[in-house]
Write a protein that binds this DNA or RNA. Structure first.
Lengths: 112, 112
DNA sequence: TTTTATCATCGTATATTTACGATATATAAT
DNA sequence: ATTATATATCGTAAATATACGATGATAAAA
């Protein structure tokens, strides 16, 4: 059991799920919030603000990179990260395609 | 190791992460898509469309219920589900508070 | 009442995620 | 050259998630 059935779904659904998964941990949301609020590269400083060990933060950053939610470069001794707004725009678009169009009709929905 | 550190983060970040987690599987995205497209209760029929065993689909539905992303009632022999638009509206709002405001300035962002 | 149909829950095997210490790597400082 | 600093990677233990068969519960049909 626990065979991976994820490839049995459409690419769109897998893509959305992967993005959601990358955001499915408060530590990663917190990282994104920090980067979004400053809206510029942050070199270092991230680990100090997080209530997690350095190795763990690094792991979370890697997951955000894999999902293309952030961009990173190495600047001398430090590593710099910033939001990848392109991905967020796409996510918002896909998300709204899925659900947004119908939200207007939510008011006159009579079920459950 | 693997001690749960999730409560070390803010309620807002935990809430967003939980919602993201509930959507972090293509099967659950697919279910939400089906419900959203019809925009009405669906009684039965969901299992037949999914490439998963009945028990697994039921498990996914339960997670969506827990996250308040869908509503469910029992109608005789069948169970009926529909989108909980309220939650989606809130999610969109929270999500946009986090990231949406800054997307305008993404163009003149010069880093990484 | 017995049977059938629909769905939830239980038990369980496997896969994946989370977290950290230890270690590696690479630059900057001395 | 040596040391200090910053960050990534490795190894690994524990926690969660995924998936399904078996079983339970409930209501409609016979």
């Amino acid at each position: 059991m626990a065979i991976n059935k994820k490839e049995a779904f459409t690419d769109t659904d897998q893509k959305l799920a992967d993005l959601a998964k990358a955001m499915a941990h408060p530590a990663r949301i917190a990282i994104l919030r920090i980067l979004a609020q400053r809206n510029t590269c942050i070199c270092g400083e991230i680990v100090e603000v997080m209530p997690l060990a350095q190795a763990t933060v690094s792991q979370h950053l890697k997951e955000l990179l894999n999902a293309n939610l952030i961009k990173g470069t190495i600047d001398g001794k430090k590593s710099c990260y910033c939001i990848n707004w392109e991905t967020f725009k796409n996510f918002n678009a896909d998300f709204n395609t899925l659900f947004g169009d119908l939200q207007v009709s939510a008011a006159n929905q009579a079920c459950c």
